[in-house]
Deep mutational scan, measured.
Amino acid sequence: ASVAVIAAGTQGNIFATSALRSMRFLQILRMVRMDRRGGTWKLLGSVVYAHSKELITAWYIGFLVLIFASFLVYLAEKDANSDFSSYADSLWWGTITLTTIGYGDKTPHTWLGRVLAAGFALLGISFFALPAGILGSGFALKVQEQHRQKHFEKRRMPAANLIQAAWRLYSTDMSRAYLTATWYYYDSILPSFRELALLFEHVQRARNGGLRPLEVRRAPVPDGAPSRYPPVATCHRPGSTSFCPGESSRMGIKDRIRMGSSQRRTGPSKQHLAPPTMPTSPSSEQVGEATSPTKVQKSWSFNDRTRFRASLRLKPRTSAEDAPSEEVAEEKSYQCELTVDDIMPAVKTVIRSIRILKFLVAKRKFKETLRPYDVKDVIEQYSAGHLDMLGRIKSLQTRVDQIVGRGPGDRKAREKGDKGPSDAEVVDEISMMGRVVKVEKQVQSIEHKLDLLLGFYSRCLRSGTSASLGAVQVPLFDPDITSDYHSPVDHEDISVSAQTLSISRSVSTNMD
């Protein structure tokens, strides 16, 4: 405001104040949320940038038409019409005319000016109207692209899951042992070998009828009888010197917790746990005396209480009078009846079946994303299906024409109403129809010849004498029936064969 007042002088105070007050009108834009329509302006900018070359070309040609039209109309009207006294007036008329506004304040009066105005109007309006069409088509394409992008975003994750499931299904095939990355992934998420051994031990116990592997080994086996189970490696608790092959000598807290839970599941009659010990102070733990958990001091820290809870689970003690015997301790020893080589084939089979199920689920979810969402998608899918159906029908028609023997030239002739090819031409065609016709002709010829021969033979049998045999009239074959199959017997006289037959029969009768 200060700059405006200084620039306008003393009389500019009122002007500056009114100008600043008129800017209050811009507050109405906040009512229509114009300040939060950044996406709309961004869309407009992207459309203009995408079609910038077309817009520049249309505007450039339109500007050239405007300059030439205004100049030529000015030359034609400057002497006869006072409205075109300057080139600026003519340029104003050209702008209003070519933009199809047409105020009518300035019009050419001479015939030359009117002809020039009409010609440049028809030429220039087309170029001035091009930017509107370019922007409209650009907006339509952009909206369609955003629509497809939205659908693509919805299909991206199911497609990625389907590709991942397909690759993992491919890589978990037993015949592709060189693909090891997927197996490394499952090695990292699978439970430890100790848990798998416990699982298979329970399965084997159920197969043995509820007997433990130790009891199965204690059962008497006759001499020479084959053992029911192959000899396997035996594993004891981590306190002993022997372990399962492939295990580490260090046992983690999870393994100890699972070991304690498995020992508690063996039965309360074979294992008696004394009350857990509780320390009397955060600094020292008295293991010899058993106290109640309700006497825990409230001033303990979080670490002390955590250690106390761990001691409740991981440090059970047995009383002296209830101490288990050596046999019970041997039964409680952890027996590992299986090795990694025995378990891994079954584990890989389970993983393979899981990968198949996940692949089928991913495939079903991806197919669900291909379903249409709204009416536009339904129409688009219907149009695509219609085009596909037309293509299939056209391909089927082409194959039928190839089989029947109607080529493209014959199809055009039928469409024009011309006469089709004759039967002889159809026979000569190298097509399925021509071959079928040729075979039918040959079969008819053979059938006719057989009928003639059978009739001749029956007449010979009825006559009974050589004289009557020679008097029999043998009809000749019709050459038209034989089609294109020409037998060497067709052109010979059958009477010669009949005479030869009669001579042979007379000779045979004389010999008798």
Score class of each variant (00 low, 15 high):
165 A>V: 10
166 A>G: 06
171 S>A: 00
171 S>C: 10
176 R>P: 05
176 R>Q: 09
177 A>V: 01
177 A>S: 04
178 Y>H: 06
178 Y>D: 05
180 T>A: 10
181 A>S: 15
182 T>A: 13
182 T>N: 12
183 W>S: 13
184 Y>F: 15
185 Y>F: 04
186 Y>C: 03
189 I>F: 02
190 L>P: 11
190 L>R: 01
192 S>F: 06
192 S>T: 08
195 E>A: 00
197 A>P: 01
197 A>D: 00
201 E>G: 12
203 V>G: 08
203 V>L: 03
204 Q>H: 06
204 Q>E: 01
207 R>L: 04
208 N>K: 05
208 N>Y: 06
208 N>D: 03
210 G>V: 15
210 G>S: 04
211 L>I: 13
213 P>T: 03
216 V>G: 06
218 R>W: 06
219 A>S: 00
220 P>R: 14
222 P>R: 06
222 P>H: 11
224 G>V: 09
224 G>E: 02
225 A>P: 05
225 A>T: 02
227 S>F: 07
227 S>A: 14
228 R>G: 04
229 Y>F: 05
230 P>Q: 04
232 V>L: 12
232 V>D: 12
232 V>F: 11
233 A>T: 01
233 A>P: 04
233 A>D: 01
235 C>S: 05
237 R>G: 04
238 P>A: 11
238 P>S: 11
238 P>R: 10
239 G>A: 15
242 S>C: 12
242 S>A: 00
243 F>C: 11
243 F>S: 11
246 G>W: 03
246 G>R: 13
247 E>D: 02
247 E>A: 12
248 S>I: 04
248 S>T: 09
250 R>P: 07
251 M>K: 14
251 M>I: 05
251 M>V: 08
251 M>T: 08
252 G>V: 06
252 G>S: 07
252 G>A: 11
253 I>T: 09
253 I>F: 05
254 K>R: 06
254 K>T: 01
255 D>N: 00
255 D>E: 06
256 R>L: 06
257 I>S: 15
257 I>M: 09
258 R>L: 08
261 S>R: 08
262 S>P: 11
263 Q>E: 08
263 Q>K: 05
264 R>W: 11
264 R>L: 10
266 T>R: 15
267 G>V: 09
267 G>C: 12
267 G>R: 05
269 S>C: 14
269 S>P: 14
270 K>M: 10
270 K>R: 05
271 Q>K: 15
271 Q>E: 11
272 H>D: 08
274 A>V: 04
274 A>S: 13
275 P>L: 11
275 P>A: 03
275 P>H: 05
276 P>Q: 15
277 T>K: 14
277 T>R: 13
277 T>S: 12
278 M>I: 13
278 M>V: 08
279 P>L: 10
281 S>P: 15
281 S>T: 15
282 P>S: 08
283 S>R: 11
283 S>I: 05
284 S>R: 01
284 S>I: 13
286 Q>P: 09
287 V>G: 04
288 G>S: 12
289 E>D: 07
289 E>Q: 12
290 A>S: 13
291 T>N: 06
291 T>I: 03
292 S>N: 04
293 P>A: 14
293 P>L: 09
297 Q>R: 10
298 K>N: 15
299 S>C: 07
299 S>G: 08
301 S>N: 14
303 N>H: 15
303 N>I: 06
304 D>N: 15
305 R>S: 12
305 R>G: 14
306 T>P: 12
307 R>P: 10
308 F>L: 14
309 R>Q: 06
309 R>G: 12
310 A>S: 02
311 S>T: 10
314 L>V: 15
316 P>T: 15
316 P>L: 14
316 P>S: 09
317 R>S: 14
318 T>N: 15
319 S>Y: 05
320 A>V: 10
321 E>Q: 12
322 D>Y: 13
323 A>V: 07
323 A>T: 15
325 S>A: 06
325 S>P: 15
326 E>K: 12
327 E>Q: 12
327 E>K: 15
329 A>T: 15
330 E>G: 04
331 E>G: 07
331 E>A: 04
332 K>Q: 03
333 S>R: 13
333 S>N: 04
333 S>I: 07
334 Y>H: 05
335 Q>L: 08
335 Q>E: 01
336 C>G: 04
337 E>Q: 10
338 L>V: 04
338 L>P: 09
338 L>I: 02
339 T>M: 02
339 T>R: 10
342 D>N: 05
342 D>Y: 00
342 D>E: 09
343 I>V: 04
343 I>S: 07
343 I>M: 09
343 I>F: 12
344 M>R: 12
345 P>R: 04
346 A>D: 03
347 V>E: 07
347 V>A: 15
348 K>T: 09
348 K>M: 05
349 T>P: 03
351 I>N: 05
352 R>L: 03
353 S>F: 06
354 I>N: 01
356 I>F: 09
358 K>R: 10
361 V>A: 07
362 A>G: 01
362 A>V: 01
363 K>E: 02
363 K>Q: 01
365 K>E: 00
365 K>N: 01
366 F>V: 01
367 K>R: 06
368 E>K: 07
373 Y>N: 03
376 K>M: 13
376 K>R: 13
377 D>H: 09
377 D>N: 08
378 V>I: 09
379 I>L: 07
381 Q>K: 01
382 Y>S: 03
383 S>A: 06
384 A>S: 10
385 G>D: 06
387 L>Q: 15
387 L>R: 15
395 S>T: 02
397 Q>L: 03
398 T>A: 11
398 T>N: 09
399 R>Q: 14
400 V>G: 03
401 D>E: 13
402 Q>K: 07
402 Q>R: 13
404 V>A: 07
404 V>G: 04
407 G>W: 12
409 G>V: 12
409 G>A: 13
410 D>V: 11
410 D>E: 02
411 R>G: 01
411 R>T: 08
412 K>R: 07
412 K>M: 08
414 R>P: 10
414 R>W: 04
415 E>D: 12
417 G>D: 05
418 D>H: 12
419 K>R: 09
419 K>N: 14
420 G>A: 13
422 S>A: 13
423 D>Y: 13
423 D>A: 13
423 D>N: 11
424 A>G: 05
425 E>G: 15
426 V>L: 02
428 D>G: 04
429 E>K: 07
430 I>T: 05
431 S>I: 02
431 S>T: 01
432 M>I: 12
433 M>I: 04
433 M>K: 03
436 V>E: 08
436 V>L: 03
438 K>M: 03
438 K>Q: 05
439 V>A: 05
441 K>R: 14
442 Q>L: 09
443 V>L: 03
443 V>G: 07
445 S>F: 01
447 E>K: 02
448 H>Q: 06
448 H>N: 00
450 L>V: 04
451 D>Y: 02
452 L>V: 05
452 L>Q: 03
454 L>S: 08
455 G>S: 03
457 Y>N: 06
458 S>L: 12
459 R>C: 12
460 C>S: 08
460 C>W: 14
460 C>F: 12
461 L>P: 06
461 L>M: 09
462 R>G: 03
463 S>F: 11
464 G>D: 06
464 G>R: 11
465 T>P: 06
467 A>G: 08
468 S>T: 12
468 S>C: 13
468 S>R: 15
470 G>C: 13
470 G>R: 12
470 G>V: 02
471 A>S: 15
471 A>V: 09
473 Q>H: 07
475 P>Q: 04
477 F>Y: 12
477 F>S: 12
478 D>A: 11
481 I>N: 13
481 I>F: 07
481 I>T: 13
482 T>P: 12
483 S>F: 08
487 S>T: 14
488 P>T: 15
489 V>E: 11
489 V>M: 04
490 D>H: 06
490 D>N: 01
491 H>D: 07
491 H>P: 03
493 D>N: 13
494 I>T: 13
494 I>M: 04
495 S>C: 07
495 S>T: 10
495 S>Y: 10
495 S>P: 04
496 V>D: 05
496 V>A: 05
497 S>F: 06
498 A>E: 09
498 A>S: 12
499 Q>H: 12
499 Q>R: 15
499 Q>P: 13
500 T>M: 15
500 T>S: 12
500 T>P: 15
501 L>H: 14
502 S>T: 14
502 S>I: 14
503 I>F: 12
503 I>N: 10
503 I>M: 02
504 S>P: 04
508 S>G: 07
508 S>R: 02
508 S>C: 14
509 T>I: 13
509 T>S: 01
510 N>T: 07
510 N>H: 09
511 M>T: 07
511 M>K: 08
512 D>E: 12
